[in-house]
């Protein structure tokens, strides 16, 4: 198995692990971590694809590599925004869960009046 296929498989598994974590972890901070794991999986897959495209003395296809750098920066920005939002939520409500919604935004409460 060559490096591209190996890391391609790792990438697919990282996406799966991250998805599972994102779905079942109750804490938003853990969801943010899982989001980063999925993102790394996607990036690693792109990296494996770039590595397959090595040619003309370039060890790897440079176009995906350049896009990956942009992608990493975008993922970092997303993480920073999500963390700031979570901290503010914690500061405002003292809780860091996503699930407990106040009755005002709860349509079933409105529906059962």
């Amino acid at each position: 198995m060559n490096a591209a296929d190996l890391f391609g498989v790792v990438a697919a598994l990282l996406v799966g692990i991250g998805l599972y974590g994102l779905i079942v972890n109750p804490q938003p901070l853990r969801k943010i971590l899982s989001f980063n794991v999925i993102g790394n999986g996607v990036f690693l897959l792109f990296g494996a694809i770039a590595y397959r495209g090595a040619a003309f003395g370039l060890g790897s296809d440079p176009v995906p590599q350049a896009l990956l750098i942009t992608g990493l920066v975008v993922a970092f920005s997303a993480t920073a925004l999500a963390v700031a939002l979570l901290l503010r939520l914690f500061e405002a409500t003292g809780s860091d869960t996503l699930s407990s919604e106040p009755p005002a935004a709860n349509p079933s409460a409105a529906g059962e009046q």
Partner: peptide, 24 residues
Amino acid sequence: RGDTLRAALRYLLFALLGSLLYLL
């Protein structure tokens, strides 16, 4: 306010997941 912050965080996390799937 707290409930809008929670809505925003849900929106952000879900939208980010959507973007990642698109990027994939």
